[in-house]
Design a binder for these strands. Structure first.
Length: 465
RNA sequence: GGCGACGUAGCCAAGUGGUUAAGGCGGGGGUCUGCAAAACCCCUAUUCGGCGGUUCGAUUCCGCCCGUCGCCUCCA
């Protein structure tokens, strides 16, 4: 398959270093609930993860939690909780959110606070090699020691320095030098180190964890586009400086950012919708479909209109996957020509995914397949094999569940609806249609939609309000 | 200001130097139904922001312009 690499700006053939693909994706800083922008990113990398395994690769997937930083400290203080309590709560919530979105688990979820020895080792190594220097209890990375600094984000130190918002710290040699280790302030969580009590700076934890769990050279390093600079740029400087191995990551994969009302969604702007908010209104499949409908490198857009449309689209795939042929049930005796052969669709799907994870195109193939399944099922042909392919590709590769949004119906309501449905059926049998329609209106007022068929009447909760 | 991305039907969104420019939503028509709903089927861009250029031929390559957005500060 071909994959885009932010560093070279090229789309190249992806070949892992050895039989196991090493993939590291930056995780969250657990100081608040994850929002749908996070959902977009982790769904994208989930699909990459799934597709690599679908292709037969072994994947070792590492995703971190940066469970110590300024915002965590500030938020914990505001809530009179410890940093650890706050982090644990949001990490637990994150796992629930990901499970609800049908995101497969990574193999390792290291946490910054549990990797202090490795972090200290990396910082020490960087000092020894001249890439870093202690200063007043802090330790800084010396950006001028890396001539290629800026190679990922395609900018030069001079250009960055020209930026008006860079402040020169008194204890730094260069304004772009960034902190590896921060001296502890009173009351803050801290760990012992050769430079005194302190805590890791922002970027170092990812270098330490990637080096520890995946080695000096990894195949894929992923994250949102907003991490390209400074986070990933600094990770490269730290990791390559420490290990002496280039490249630290062979493919840098960045997803575009999710927008809400024409602006990117972010914690700092406050314009966010949490994953729980979204899941309360839309199915996991709808959320995934809305993400995968656009290429991962471009921006995504969250809106009720888009999600409602995706919900309908999800229902369309589900319908086709479980549609029953109108004629005789399929059997082994079914002539070849009376069967829908999905192999061409399958090839097109794989070709699309092979081309830098072109999920919009892959999805289009699935919709084409759904269309053919419906048409042929109507004509009485055997579509079982095609349906199996639809389910297989949708579930295994795209992480769709083909299930409706679950839960939310209590027994009392169900009993009431059942009784009303029964009454309406009796009225219909008696051809008292006006009365039957009145009952239907009553049922509709409860937020329930009825579906009549030859086998009887079924009901379900209407779509999101 | 520097660097970068993008502008395709009512909306979302793939894609290609040249036969009919994917797919989804929405909309229109039809099948089914007591009527509906749901579901399914059919239809729905002579055209790809604007102006030039290269070319036999450009939506696709180049230049300029207009517009939107991102990064340069915490962010997936």
């Amino acid at each position: 398959m071909r994959l885009s690499d932010t560093l070279t700006g090229e789309k190249r053939d992806f070949v892992p270093l050895d039989s196991t693909v090493r993939m590291y994706v930056c995780g969250i800083t657990p100081y608040a609930s994850a929002h749908v922008g996070h959902a977009m990113s982790y769904i994208v990398f989930d699909v990459l993860h799934r597709y690599l395994e679908f292709k037969g690769y072994n994947v070792r997937y590492v995703q971190n939690f940066t469970d110590i930083d300024d915002k965590l400290i500030a938020r914990a203080a505001a809530e009179s909780a410890t940093v650890q309590e706050l982090a644990e709560r949001h990490i637990a919530e994150y796992f629930e959110d990901m499970a609800a979105l049908n995101v497969l688990e990574a193999d390792v979820y290291p946490r910054a606070t549990q990797e202090i020895p490795k972090i200290v080792e990396v910082v020490s190594g960087l000092i020894e090699k001249g890439y870093a220097y202690p200063s007043g209890g802090d330790v800084y990375f010396r950006v001028r020691s890396v001539p290629s600094y800026g190679k990922l984000s395609h900018r030069s130190l001079d250009a960055m320095r020209a930026g008006a918002r860079v402040e020169v710290g008194v204890e730094k040699e260069h304004p772009m030098d960034f902190v590896l280790w921060k001296a502890a302030k009173p009351g803050e969580p801290s760990w012992e180190s050769p430079w005194g009590p302190g805590r890791p700076g922002w970027h170092i934890e990812c270098s330490a964890m990637a080096l520890r769990y995946l080695g000096d050279s990894i195949d894929i390093h992923g994250g949102g586009q907003d991490l390209v600079f400074p986070h990933h740029e600094n990770e490269i400087a730290q990791s390559e400086g420490f290990s002496g191995t280039e490249p630290f990551a062979r493919f840098w994969v960045h997803n575009g950012l999710l927008h809400l009302d024409a602006e990117k969604m972010s914690k700092s702007l406050g314009n966010l919708v949490t994953i729980r908010d979204a899941l309360a209104r839309y199915s996991s499949d709808a959320i995934r479909l809305s993400v995968l409908n656009a290429h991962y490198r471009g921006p995504g857009y969250y809106s009720d209109e888009a999600l409602a449309g995706a919900e309908r689209a999800a229902a369309r795939l589900r319908q086709a996957a479980f549609a029953r042929p109108v004629a005789a049930p399929p059997s082994a005796a079914t002539p070849e020509k009376e069967r829908l052969d999905p192999s061409a669709h399958r090839e097109r799907f794989i070709a699309a995914m092979d081309d830098d994870l072109n999920t919009p195109q892959a999805l289009a193939v699935l919709f084409d397949l759904a269309h053919d399944v419906n048409r042929d099922a109507e004509a009485g042909r055997d579509v079982a094999g095609a349906q199996a392919t639809l389910l297989e590709l949708g579930r295994e590769v795209l992480g769709l569940t083909f299930e409706e949004r679950g839960g939310g119906i209590d027994d009392e309501l169900a009993a009431r609806v059942e009784a009303l449905v029964e009454r309406r059926s009796e009225l219909r049998a008696a051809k008292r249609f006006a009365d039957a329609d009145a009952v239907r209106d009553e049922i509709a007022a409860l937020g329930v939609t009825l579906t009549d068929s030859a086998e009887g009447t079924t009901w379900k909760m209407s779509g999101p309000s």
